[in-house]
């Protein structure tokens, strides 16, 4: 049980196949609670696929097949009593492109709680306010909660998507290149937000942007062709990598 205490999420001997394609090869990784873990690597290395294993979003792809284990607080997410709905409430995901629903701001934020059975209007209003405060959107948006969410700026949309997750009180936030559709200023703002959120949540971020990984994460995993090449302290990975491939990648020789 010590492992379960030490790690929020832990993958062991994780393999994933898309049909015959071996997309993840024997991955072993432990994600520490209330920290930011970055997964870096060139396109097609399997980093997004790995991220999507943690909330079982790969389940919607028919040809995907998984072996091995992923433990969330020590319980296997594939075999234990954790249902899909429950798992995804505890492990939320922010996508590459902000994807607010074509509903009002309020309905976007109330969507998750409603999915999980919340009907009480007053409580919903409170959740909406708190989750907007968590991403520092409340002051900007409190007077137009009925405006369509798609009328917001890209940065606000991505913040809204994070608020939408916060509204269901998750434990883990998975972020799949959350800033790749944003400008540098918006990116900096979202990174600040991530640091703040990491005080309360466990964050795993997939990013193409090595500087971003270096800036925000405490631990970094480097993946290549479906394998986890190296995993360790972010400073160590970037300044003193043990593997030659890691060194080549972080020094910009490919990727």
């Amino acid at each position: 049980m010590t492992d379960a205490m030490e790690y929020k999420l832990q993958a062991s001997s994780l393999n994933l196949y898309y049909g015959r394609f071996h997309a993840l090869k024997n991955i072993n990784i432990g994600i520490r609670p209330r920290s930011i873990t970055a997964i870096i690597g060139p396109s097609g290395c399997g980093k997004s696929t790995l991220l999507r294993c943690f909330n079982r979003l790969n389940d919607i792809i028919k040809s995907a097949r998984v072996t091995g284990r992923i433990l969330l607080d020590g319980a296997d997410i594939f075999n234990s009593g954790i249902g899909l709905t429950q798992l995804r409430r505890r492990v939320g995901m922010v996508f590459q492109r902000p994807n607010p629903f074509p509903l009002s701001i309020f309905d976007n934020l109330a969507y998750g709680p409603r999915v999980h059975g919340m009907r009480d209007r007053e409580e919903l209003e409170m959740i909406v306010e708190n989750s907007l405060r968590a991403t520092m959107l409340w002051d900007d948006l409190k007077d137009r909660l009925n405006a369509p969410a798609l009328s917001l700026s890209p940065e606000q949309q991505q913040r809204l998507c994070i608020s939408r997750l916060v509204a269901v009180e998750p434990e883990v936030l998975l972020m799949d290149e959350p800033c790749s559709a944003l400008d540098p200023f918006a990116t900096a703002h979202i990174e600040d937000l991530m640091r703040k959120l990491a005080e309360q949540y466990t964050i795993v971020i997939v990013t193409h942007n090595m500087q971003q990984a270096a800036r925000v994460s405490t631990e970094t995993a480097f993946m290549l062709l479906g394998e986890l090449v190296e995993f360790g302290d972010t400073t160590q990975i970037f300044q003193n990598p043990r593997q030659k491939k890691t060194e080549e990648y972080v020094s910009g020789r490919y990727g």
Binding site: N55, L57, I60, L84, T85, Q86, L87, R88, R89, G92, M93, F95, R97, N99, P100, F101, P102, Y111, G112, V115, H116, C161, R164, L165, V168
Partner: peptide, 10 residues
């Protein structure tokens, strides 16, 4: 992406 967002919320 709407569909994915919804499913990812459970």
């Amino acid at each position: 992406s709407f569909w994915e967002g919804s499913v990812a919320l459970g």
